[in-house]
Amino acid sequence: MPDPQLDAIDRKILRVLQTDGKISVAELAQKVGLSPSPCSRRIGLLEKAGIIKGYAAIVDQKKVGLPISAFASIKLERQREEDLDRFEEIVARWPEVLDCYLMTGQRDYLMRIVAADLEAYERFIKDKLTRLENIASIETSFALGQVKRSEVLPLS
C-alpha cells in the first residue's frame, strides 16, 4: 500500500503521539482539533500504512542493569548481497543489538550494543560476533555518557 499524503492534522497527530504514546484518543483529538471518531480513524490509517509502526515504553537502560553502550563498527570480508543478507538476518535475532545500520565508508555496519558490564560485552563479542563467517574486523567505541536520545522525528 503506498504511503498516503500526510496533511497538517496527520502531522499534528504524529507529533503528539511521538511524545506521548499513551495519550487517550479523546485528549489527542482535542489537541489536534478533531472529534474522537475521526481522530481514531486517522490513527488507524496511519497504522495501516505503516507510518505508525508500533508503541513502546522508553526504558532507562541503566536502571534495568544495562549501563554499557558499545558502538561496534564491522567490516566484512565480502559485501555480496547474500553475505549482507545473512549477516543482517543473524544480527536481527540478537537482543543485545539495539541498532544496526548498513553504512557507507570504511566500515560495512555500525551497531549499538547494550551490556551489563565489560565482561558481558566481551562474551557477546566472543560468543556471537566473532563466530560469524565473513567478519574481517570489529572496532568498538564505548559511550561515556548519553547527551541526547530521541525517537521524535522533526515533522514540519
Rank of each mutant, 00 (worst) to 15 (best):
P2M: 02
P2L: 04
P4S: 04
P4A: 02
Q5H: 06
L6K: 01
A8S: 13
D10V: 06
R11F: 04
I13W: 00
I13R: 00
R15D: 05
V16Y: 00
D20F: 07
G21V: 09
K22I: 10
K22H: 12
S24L: 09
V25H: 04
E27W: 01
L28F: 02
L28K: 00
A29G: 08
Q30M: 11
K31P: 03
K31G: 03
V32W: 01
V32M: 00
S35A: 11
P36D: 03
S37T: 15
S37F: 07
P38C: 04
L45E: 09
L46E: 03
E47Q: 14
K48R: 14
A49M: 03
I52P: 00
K53N: 05
G54D: 08
Y55T: 09
A56N: 04
A56S: 15
I58Y: 10
V59W: 05
V59F: 09
D60H: 09
Q61I: 14
K63A: 12
V64W: 02
G65R: 05
L66E: 06
A70N: 06
F71W: 03
S73A: 13
S73W: 02
I74P: 06
K75T: 15
E77W: 10
E77H: 14
Q79R: 15
E81Y: 11
L84T: 07
E89I: 09
A92E: 12
A92N: 14
R93G: 10
E96W: 01
V97L: 03
D99Q: 15
C100Y: 02
C100F: 10
C100N: 10
Y101T: 08
M103P: 07
G105L: 08
G105Q: 04
Q106R: 13
L110Q: 09
L110I: 13
M111S: 05
M111H: 02
I113S: 02
I113F: 04
I113P: 01
V114T: 12
A115Q: 02
A116M: 13
D117V: 11
D117R: 03
Y121I: 06
E122I: 08
R123Q: 12
R123S: 14
F124I: 05
I125P: 02
I125L: 15
K126H: 13
D127F: 06
K128D: 11
L129R: 01
L129E: 00
L129C: 06
T130P: 02
R131V: 08
L132A: 10
N134C: 14
N134K: 05
I135R: 03
I138K: 02
E139G: 11
T140F: 07
S141R: 12
S141I: 12
A143C: 11
A143S: 14
L144Y: 10
L144C: 11
G145E: 09
G145Y: 08
K148V: 14
S150W: 05
S150Q: 08
E151A: 13
V152G: 09
P154F: 04
P154C: 07
S156T: 11
